[in-house]
Design a protein around this nucleic acid. Structure first.
Lengths: 193, 193
DNA sequence: GTAATTTCTTAATCTAGTTTAAGTCATCAC
DNA sequence: GTGATGACTTAAACTAGATTAAGAAATTAC
């Protein structure tokens, strides 16, 4: 496996030995998926914890009316999975697809458990990662409770300036909890200023 | 320290030795706080990771207009803290107060770090806790993106049936991201059916 | 190179949820 | 016991943001 990428992301906190590196499977995901090719699909049981090495993934929830809602964008260095599905081996409620050609490293449920069992440093690594992720998620909840659509967009631009350049606006609107039409309105209003 | 409570909550996953138990400080928090008495206040640096043994705490965010937004209710067995403030020793953005007379166990930042350092089982314990919490938080984000106010309330009732009995409705409305007036409207509508 | 598909915008209409304001109960202090 | 304070409701007016529909601009497909 080619570990340059994952190393550059993990190394600061955890050092992977060649032995440990073998736990991961590398995979290239094109933006346009062919028949039978996919990452994770709602309804299926999640089998892998995914680490994004390059490109960008999007995790979304499809509601009862068939509308998609973007839960997360995952760029290089991020991890993604339906943790509930992965842990309890129940059908996932999220789907994941690529927004750009992406290289990911897959860590299967079994491999993950082995890794945690054999190398306690990974318990620490994931504890810190989940802890940080929790802060981010709490922040987003606060924003959805107390910010206007415009404030949420401003905040998004400041926090993820690079994302707007290649993620279709309609997905950003979805992530921010508004319609693409309304985001368009906000953008024009800010152009006029 | 009286550890009956914390033991009953933690024991299923982690066994505390008498030595480990000494890391916690017990504290009783009345609903009505007197001058100088408080749990955590926005603006202050968070010093403790709080474990609720009995009663109920509420963590909230005060926005720029002075309006409070409930981020979390913490009943027996839950943990709460502004993790960002605790980790980086920066001013907290959340305040915490009791909704009922409560007994909590405090774990200071230093004690927490010692605990994680000396007893690796706690890395695992908190990793699992944060992981589960992440699932809950992600769920709440999805709900704020795709559920109506009424659906959110229904879901809340099913998930936390006991909370509605003693948490003032205005805080539940805040937690659910709606005004108390609108929650009142929903409740009447459902009474009529 | 042009048809087809997708992305983004504009604008009119509409509605879920807010705001404001007032009134009814409880609870609590003294 | 009564005055004050907080909890909950009702209802009218209002608005942030959704919906619908249509067109413009950009990408992709062959």
């Amino acid at each position: 496996m080619h570990v340059q990428g994952i190393l550059s992301h993990i190394k600061r906190q955890v050092i992977l030995t060649p032995e440990e590196e073998q736990f991961f499977t590398s995979l290239l995901i094109p933006v346009k998926l062919k028949q039978g090719e996919f990452i994770e699909e709602a309804g299926e049981i999640t089998t892998n914890f995914i680490h994004v090495n390059s490109g960008c993934l999007m995790t979304y929830y499809t509601d009862k009316d068939g509308n998609d809602h973007v839960v997360q964008f995952s760029t290089a260095g991020w991890w993604t999975a339906d943790l509930h599905s992965l842990t309890h081996q129940l059908p996932s409620i999220y789907s994941t697809r690529a927004l750009a050609d992406s290289e990911v490293f897959l860590l299967s449920k079994i491999r993950l458990e082995e890794l945690l069992e054999r190398y306690p440093v990974f318990e620490r690594f994931f504890r810190i990662m989940f802890q940080n992720s929790l802060v981010t998620h709490q922040n987003r909840i606060v924003q959805s409770l107390s910010f206007t659509a415009e404030e949420r967009y401003e905040n998004f631009q400041q926090k993820y300036p690079q994302l707007e350049q290649y993620v279709p606006l309609k997905y950003i609107a979805s992530y921010l909890g508004m319609t693409p039409e309304f985001l368009s309105k906000i953008r024009r209003k800010r152009m006029d200023k």
